[in-house]
Amino acid sequence: MSHPSKHLLAIEGLEPPHIADLLDLAESYALLNRSGKTQRDLLKGRTLINLFFEDSTRTRTSFELAGKRLGADVINMSVSTSSVNKGETLLDTASTLNAMQCDLLVIRHAQSGAPALLSQKVDAAVINAGDGTHEHPTQALLDALTIRRHKGRLEGLVVAICGDITHSRVARSNIHLLTTMGSRVRIVGPPTLIPADAARLGVEVFTDMKKGLEGADVVMMLRLQRERMSGGLVPSAREFFRFYGLDAEKLAVAKPDSIVMHPGPMNRGVEIDSAIADHPTRSVIGEQVEMGVACRMAVLDVLARRLPRNR
């Protein structure tokens, strides 16, 4: 079992064996979780702090559950976003956390690079739980595990990532992970929501949803933030749904056994039709959440192995 760093700040830079190891370990935790044998003492005596500068229910809960299932002491710290979410707070918080002798620090922040900055100032292993529009590594891991469980592999699969690519950390982490593992990744969205030089990340770019979905094994939808419409990047929600929302008609051009994913929370009727989101065989959105806990257990496990025995 190898991991190249003390921290998990990004998928970019991980090699295929690192990713495969994490997914294999997560798979074993998924089985363990289903068996009901949850509590282990791997992280007994370790302190895990969830430091969330942005509101999040599912990711924070998922990390909390993962930590508790491995026996860690888990503390949630939500730093109000209404007060200044400036970096001064970030670095001041870092010294506080050091004083608390935290072992594993899970951070979500609205600014790209905030976990990297924090990792330079704290002794704990830092896990990026989403930073700005940069990366969300554990989301990419859980997506990959979900895909692998359904398709048996990642290599050679056609994966279409659709919607607001520019502002999506989920998209970036998935692009890095899936291209590293040999999938053929397409990104699909209106030109105003495709980042500059996106093709240089090793993906194919589509602005026509049906062309982008043709023959896809996996259709991954992204959340469209409401403020993108007030910012003028998209004229209206109904126009977005007409051209880039996933409905049965558009999904029909993907492979008949293709799966539909969404990192949540969903905007039903904006990026995804309810009938698709709740589809009993095509939608794997519920399973993504389940795999989230398993992947986060794997990440905590791997990073904990690199921690000093006693502090």
């Binding site: 790209s112 690079g113 930073d131 700005g132 529009t133 950390r169 980042p195 500059a196 240089r200 990340l201």
Partner: peptide, 8 residues
């Protein structure tokens, strides 16, 4: 490309 990768 660089700003896209860094999410800036």
């Amino acid at each position: 490309e660089l700003a896209t990768r860094l999410g800036l």
